[in-house]
Amino acid sequence: MEQVYIVVEDYENSNADPIQLNAGDTVKLGGKSNDEEPWANWIYCVSERTGKAGWTPVQILQMNGATGTATTDYTAEEMTVAVGDILYATKELNGWLWCLREADNQRGWVPKNCLCHAEKW
């Protein structure tokens, strides 16, 4: 279900070459985020198909020892946003929202702590 958010804190995409996984891709598993951090349930992975690395939500992986298999398509594409941007979110994972900015049709992940639900604005 789509929800409308307003950006209340600027965020700059720091991920120039994000990991992208297709369902069924195999990854090598690295370190897991600390559950005490604001971004719990992430694991650092390297795609065996592309060699790209990045943080991946544990919910989309079927893990088997030092490797995992993606159960769904996923991209770690982030979006740079500025205060006042209006975003439409369709998915939430571990403190991040997958958003569309209608003004330029750009899509990507944005940290939820940079956003305010439009109804509360």
Rank of each mutant, 00 (worst) to 15 (best):
M1T: 06
M1N: 10
M1D: 10
Y5K: 02
Y5H: 05
V8G: 02
V8W: 05
D10W: 02
D10G: 00
E12S: 09
E12N: 07
E12H: 02
E12K: 02
E12C: 05
S14G: 15
N15T: 06
N15W: 02
D17W: 05
D17S: 13
P18H: 00
P18R: 01
N22L: 11
N22M: 14
A23N: 06
D25N: 06
D25A: 04
T26K: 14
T26P: 10
T26V: 13
K28Q: 12
L29R: 01
G30P: 00
K32H: 13
K32Q: 15
S33I: 02
S33H: 01
D35E: 14
E36K: 08
E37G: 13
E37Q: 14
E37Y: 13
P38W: 13
W39V: 10
A40N: 09
N41R: 10
N41K: 11
N41W: 07
W42I: 03
W42T: 00
I43E: 05
C45D: 05
C45Y: 02
V46D: 08
S47M: 04
E48R: 08
E48K: 08
R49C: 12
T50I: 05
A53I: 01
T56Q: 01
T56H: 03
T56I: 02
V58T: 14
V58P: 00
I60Q: 06
I60T: 12
L61V: 07
L61Q: 02
Q62V: 12
Q62G: 11
M63P: 09
N64Q: 12
N64A: 07
N64H: 14
G65V: 03
A66Q: 15
T67F: 15
G68A: 09
G68I: 03
T69D: 07
A70S: 12
A70H: 02
T71N: 13
T71H: 10
D73T: 08
A76Q: 05
E77F: 07
E77H: 11
V81W: 00
G84V: 00
G84N: 04
G84I: 02
D85M: 01
I86R: 04
L87D: 06
L87Q: 03
Y88N: 03
T90H: 10
T90C: 13
K91F: 12
K91T: 14
L93W: 07
N94F: 05
L97M: 15
L97N: 08
W98C: 06
W98I: 10
C99E: 05
R101M: 08
R101G: 03
E102F: 10
D104R: 06
D104W: 12
D104E: 13
D104M: 07
D104S: 11
D104V: 08
N105C: 10
R107F: 15
R107K: 13
R107C: 14
G108Q: 00
W109D: 01
V110L: 08
V110G: 04
K112Y: 07
N113R: 09
N113L: 12
C114L: 08
C114F: 09
C114Y: 09
C114R: 05
C114M: 08
C114H: 11
L115K: 02
L115E: 00
L115Q: 00
C116Q: 09
C116W: 04
H117Q: 14
A118C: 09
E119Y: 06
K120N: 11
K120D: 11
W121V: 11
